[in-house]
Design a protein around this nucleic acid. Structure first.
Lengths: 197, 197
DNA sequence: AAACAGGACGAACGATCGTGCGTATTGTTG
DNA sequence: CAACAATACGCACGATCGTTCGTCCTGTTT
């Protein structure tokens, strides 16, 4: 590895560190609540240094969305690919998702729930990025649901409907739990178990 | 009615007008996105005039929560009380709620969905007010679910679980529809019909 | 060795924010 | 009539925001 790579990596790693922290902050304060100064202070950097790396606040928001997406894939999606496709992997998604909500990796819980609701009435690139992430997640869910149907499960139900219901219940579990409802996650687990039975 | 009442009414009506517009704005931009200057400009008032009526931004946020709550009661809860208690009234809630989401009264759709997610990781009086509104709504739902159970419906299910599922599905319908998913509301309707059958 | 590019910084900008002060207005109450 | 409380306003404040500019440092390329 030559020193050129090290320098490039240094910049890229600074970006990744900031974006990751931005995802953390945004999961609590929202993507709109992000500020360059706050992030710089948290990480011991200068405001203009952060601004140099991302150019605009919008770029920082987009980087936060991407970083949170990576975290979700790492903790929820990837481990489930150890399971065979279809119902086992689908249950892996759900189990990992519940774990991701119960022991939050990001300070504010599920980033997608927070930012989707925050941007569902807006326009622009950030909303589009949030929307794309949401679509990808639904597509992933529906794909495994259809595989499960090919294996003889859930045959009476429409795949999109099952995905919609799963997403709705887990999202509500995230919000309910964060609002202090101790029964939210067990209740949601029971409902999801019934859905997948 | 004497002139004293008129004056008092005038102040109260100004508050109500501002709070109602604040609920409208907050349904899109969030309660944190509210600003005294923005509201004043929208309504042709001075920023300090608005500040005088509410004192602090936090009071304005609390007034917005209360106003949005009133709107929800007016459009969703009250009309359903024309139906007899139990299953008919429960279905009234759901039908009115779907209508409230499909043809939004507030610009950003369901205020409770937006603000609950926005404040679910925070502390303070605004979060407490949002939480109280959420609890009240769940209590209202569960009360009619239990009545319906007394009438022979939904007997195999826990009342809290049914309320949780109903809230989750309709909330997801609100978010999905606002994200451009045309199938969100029909899909949610089908799921809810299945839940209440 | 010289020219270059990217990272990081301090400083400053215009804008907007919430808030407080002083004041004029208005209708009520002593 | 005088004292009063509630609006409503203009104005200014300190703070924070995103963004831009100039500069220094460092490692790469010619």
């Amino acid at each position: 590895m030559n020193t050129s790579d090290q320098r490039l990596v240094k910049g890229a790693r600074a970006r990744a560190t900031i974006a990751r922290h931005a995802a953390d902050v945004a999961s609590v304060e929202g993507l709109t609540g992000l500020s360059l100064g706050r992030l710089a202070a948290d990480l011991g950097l200068s405001k203009s240094g952060v601004a140099t790396l991302f150019g605009t606040k919008e770029n920082l928001q987009l980087a936060a969305v991407q970083s949170a997406r990576d975290v979700f894939i790492e903790h929820v999606v990837k481990p489930a690919f150890a399971e065979p496709g279809g119902m086992p992997r689908l249950k892996g998604f759900v189990d990992n998702w519940f774990a991701y909500i119960e022991e939050p990796v990001l300070a504010g819980g599920c980033f997608r729930v927070a930012t989707t609701v925050e941007f569902d009435s807006r326009t622009g690139p950030v909303r589009d990025a949030v929307d794309a992430d949401r679509r990808d997640w639904f597509a992933l869910l529906e794909k495994e649901i259809r595989r499960a149907q090919g294996q003889g499960h859930l045959e009476t139900r429409d795949a999109h409907t099952v995905a919609f219901a799963l997403d709705a219940i887990v999202a509500a579990a995230n919000t309910g739990a964060r609002m202090g409802d101790q029964s939210a996650i067990p209740t949601a687990r029971a409902i999801v178990d019934g859905l997948l039975a």
